[in-house]
Simulated assay, not measured.
Amino acid sequence: MARNIDITVSPEKTDRLLADLQEIDGLVSMRLQKGVSISPPGDVVSATVTSRSLQEVMRLLDRYELGKPAGVSTMSSEPDSLVDAKKSKELDRDWVEASWEEMETIISKDSNANTILLFLVCASGILAAVGIATNAIHVVIGGMLVAPGFMPLMRMTLGWTCQCQMVWKKGLWDFLLIYLILIVSAALTSLLLQALGSDPLPGKADYYQLSQPLLKYWTTVTPSSVIASAAASLAGAVLIATKRSVFTSGVMIGLALVPSASIIGMALVEGDVETMGAATKRWLVDIALILGISYLFFAAIKALRHKRRIAI
């Protein structure tokens, strides 16, 4: 998918930037507006480039000190449609690939742990706890789908890959806060269920004729569960890198992050140390797989495609 990139540049660098941009094969169009930017002050160069050329453009902008006080600043977007006779074939077969900065923006949108998002985390913990208590898989899946539990881990590995301390520290903070709230929400729900006369961790009744209780599945590490979590981890990293974050809800279904974290809180309330330990083990295994596999993937595309650090 092509990109529209608006570049704010100081007037003395404008002509040189225009000449450098024209050397890029994937340049579709370019416009110049002199002196229109108020903050930061300067000229605005608007370029449309193919996605294949995006990383080349970003490396060029790094040479103009992208993101630094005396350098250039940018804003990217995607056109809804683009017709160009000279580039029609190239545009038709263009791929989708995000820059580091676009990935960080995608992750920020879905995982910044603000007050409103934490209400969503509470709802996720409640749904997961109720679903586990009643062995109702559809309720647990509901909790998994609404939980913003995957993106903070992606932010951590993105920061490590791009050697940006600010990015991975934000990811670590969001991760700790989100899962603390989720575990506490599940624990409080477990207390409420006890008060209402229900057993929060029955582990007995089957639902939808499942061959084993849901509780056992999300507290057990098996070769098949590791393979599933590894595949989901890789899928999540690819979805971020290709700007398909809308599908990461499917990744959460493939992982045990939300139900295992919820069981930790529920088992704590029940005083069931064995179950809490098993759930913690499953949760940590999934976290390790996500961090390890996504880091390897981001490191690979950094070496092969991006060849740059993040401009933050």
Rank of each mutant, 00 (worst) to 15 (best):
M1H: 13
A2I: 07
I5E: 04
D6L: 15
V9S: 10
S10N: 12
D15A: 15
A19H: 08
L21T: 04
Q22C: 10
G26I: 08
L27I: 12
S29Q: 05
M30Y: 02
K34H: 09
S37G: 08
S39H: 10
D43R: 01
D43E: 07
V45H: 05
S46Y: 07
Q55N: 14
R59Y: 07
L61K: 08
D62V: 08
K68W: 02
G71K: 07
V72A: 08
V72W: 00
M75E: 01
S77V: 06
E78T: 15
E78R: 15
S81L: 15
L82R: 07
A85T: 14
L91A: 14
L91R: 06
L91Y: 13
D92F: 15
W95S: 12
E97W: 14
E97G: 14
E97Y: 13
W100Y: 14
E101Q: 10
E102N: 11
M103P: 09
T105A: 15
I107Y: 08
S108Y: 11
N114G: 10
T115F: 15
L118K: 00
L118G: 02
F119V: 14
L120N: 06
L120I: 11
A123F: 13
A129L: 05
A129S: 14
A133K: 09
T134C: 03
N135W: 09
G142Q: 04
M144T: 07
M144E: 01
V146Q: 03
P148L: 06
L153I: 11
L153H: 03
L153P: 04
R155G: 11
C164M: 06
M166W: 12
V167E: 09
W168E: 04
K169V: 12
K169G: 03
K169P: 01
K169L: 14
G171I: 10
G171R: 00
D174N: 15
L176C: 13
L176G: 06
L177K: 10
V184C: 03
A187K: 04
A187S: 08
T189Q: 04
G197Q: 11
S198Y: 13
S198K: 11
P202R: 01
L210R: 03
S211A: 05
L215N: 04
W218N: 00
W218P: 06
V221T: 00
P223E: 00
P223R: 00
V226S: 01
A231E: 10
L234P: 02
I240S: 10
R244D: 00
F247N: 12
S249R: 09
G250W: 12
M252F: 06
M252Q: 12
A256D: 01
A256K: 05
L257R: 00
V258R: 11
A261M: 10
S262L: 01
G265K: 06
M266V: 08
M266W: 03
L268H: 02
L268I: 11
E270A: 15
E270R: 09
D272P: 07
E274W: 00
A279H: 03
T280S: 07
T280Q: 06
T280W: 07
R282L: 10
L284E: 03
V285T: 06
D286A: 03
I287K: 00
A288F: 05
L289S: 00
L289A: 05
I290F: 01
G292P: 04
A300K: 10
I301L: 15
L304Q: 08
K307A: 05
K307M: 11
R309L: 14
A311L: 07
